[in-house]
Design a protein around this nucleic acid. Structure first.
Length: 287
DNA sequence: CATTAGCCCTGAGAGC
DNA sequence: TGCTCTCAGGGCTAAT
C-alpha cells in the first residue's frame, strides 16, 4: 500500500479499464467510469484490505488475495527505481499491452500505469463511501489492528479466553486480530515460544504477554523488509520483499530452528496441517 | 453458537 | 520431454 501511495497519491486517474467482469466477486457496476478522471486523495489499510480514497467521497476497497499484486510501470518514479531485471523493467507505460492476468489497469496523469495482476483471482475490488468505509460488509466485525497501541496482551487475552480452538486457528481468524496470515502466525508463535496446537484459551495470561510483542515485531520487521515474496509477489515498484530470508520456521520443515541448531534428538522444524493450512513449528521451543 | 471442510483459480514444482 | 498430482501469502459459505 505504501508503494502504491507513493506512486498514486495526488495524481489524477486519466483512464481506467477492466479486463474481465470481476475477480472473486464481480467488480462493482461502473468501476472503471468511477475511477476515470478522479484524483487519488489518500490511502489507508485495514486488516489485509487497502482503501484508496478518491474524489467524490468514494473509497476503492482492494484485497490482493493470495496471488494479487499492484504493479506500476512507466513513470519517472518507477524508472528511477527499477532494477535491470525488475518485473516492470520494460517501462512501456500506458500504451503497453496488458500483461498476463492483469485484470484492472489505471493510467495516471503522469503516464504511470498501475495494473492489478492476480493469477488466481482470489482478490477483490469494491467501492464504498469514504464516510462509511468500516461499514463495508468485508470490514464489519474485523478485530483490532495488531500494530495499534490498543492491541495489548489484555485485549488479545480477552478475545482468546474460553476458546477451545488451536491458537493457530484463532490468530488466523480476522475477528480476533486483523491482518495476520499463515506466514506471520507461524513466525509470531515461534518467537513467543507457543505451540500452534495449544488451545487458544490457555494462551491468555503470561503467554499472551509474550505473543503480542512477537506479533508486533514480526509484522514491523516484515513491512520494513518489503514483505515476503514466496513466488510471484512484488511490491508496487516491482521489487520483491525479502522478509522470507528471515523466516525462522515457515517453509523450513526438517531444518533446525534458530534457537536449537543441530541439537541431538531435535528433528528440526515440524510441518503439520491445521484447518487445512500448513503449520510450521519447533516442538522443542514451542509449548 | 463455534469449528471445520469445500471451494473459488492458476502456476510451480515434484514425481513418474 | 511431458504427463499427473499436490500445494500455495485468503476468506466466504455451507455443513457439521
Amino acid at each position: 500500500m505504501r508503494g502504491l501511495a507513493a506512486v498514486m497519491q495526488g495524481r489524477r486517474i486519466r483512464h481506467a479499464e477492466t479486463m474481465r467482469e470481476g475477480l472473486r466477486w464481480p467488480f462493482p457496476k461502473g468501476l472503471a467510469a468511477r475511477l476515470t478522471g478522479a484524483e487519488v486523495l489518500s490511502f489507508r489499510r485495514r486488516a489485509k484490505f487497502m482503501l484508496m480514497r478518491i474524489e467524490g467521497g468514494t473509497s476503492v476497497l482492494i484485497h490482493l488475495g493470495m496471488s494479487g499484486r499492484m504493479v506500476a510501470r512507466g513513470s519517472a518514479y518507477v524508472a528511477a527505481r527499477q532494477g535491470p531485471q525488475g518485473a516492470i523493467s520494460d517501462a512501456r507505460g500506458h500504451n503497453a499491452p496488458p500483461e498476463l492476468h492483469e485484470h484492472l489497469v489505471m493510467t495516471l496523469d503522469d503516464g504511470t500505469r498501475i495494473g492489478f495482476v492476480d493469477p488466481r483471482r482470489f482478490g477483490c475490488v469494491d467501492l464504498v463511501p469514504t464516510a462509511a468505509e468500516d461499514a463495508h460488509r468485508l470490514l464489519v466485525g474485523i478485530g483490532p489492528e495488531p500494530l495499534d497501541d490498543a492491541f495489548t496482551p489484555a485485549v488479545l487475552g480477552a478475545a482468546l479466553t474460553g476458546k477451545q480452538t488451536p491458537i493457530k486457528a484463532a490468530l488466523l481468524d480476522q475477528k480476533i486480530v486483523a491482518g495476520l496470515g499463515n506466514i506471520y502466525v507461524a513466525e509470531a508463535l515461534y518467537r513467543a515460544g507457543i505451540s500452534p496446537l495449544r488451545l487458544a484459551g490457555t494462551v491468555a495470561g503470561a503467554r499472551s504477554v509474550r505473543l503480542v510483542p512477537a506479533i508486533k515485531a514480526v509484522l514491523t520487521e516484515s513491512i520494513e523488509a518489503g514483505g515476503s515474496s514466496l513466488r510471484d509477489y512484488v511490491r508496487a515498484d516491482g521489487e520483491i520483499g525479502i522478509f522470507q530470508e528471515n523466516f525462522a520456521v515457515y517453509g523450513r520443515a526438517g531444518q533446525p530452528c534458530p534457537d536449537c541448531p543441530g541439537l541431538p534428538g531435535c528433528g528440526g522444524v515440524q510441518q503439520i496441517t491445521q484447518s487445512g493450512r500448513s503449520s510450521f513449528f519447533c516442538p522443542k521451543t514451542q509449548r
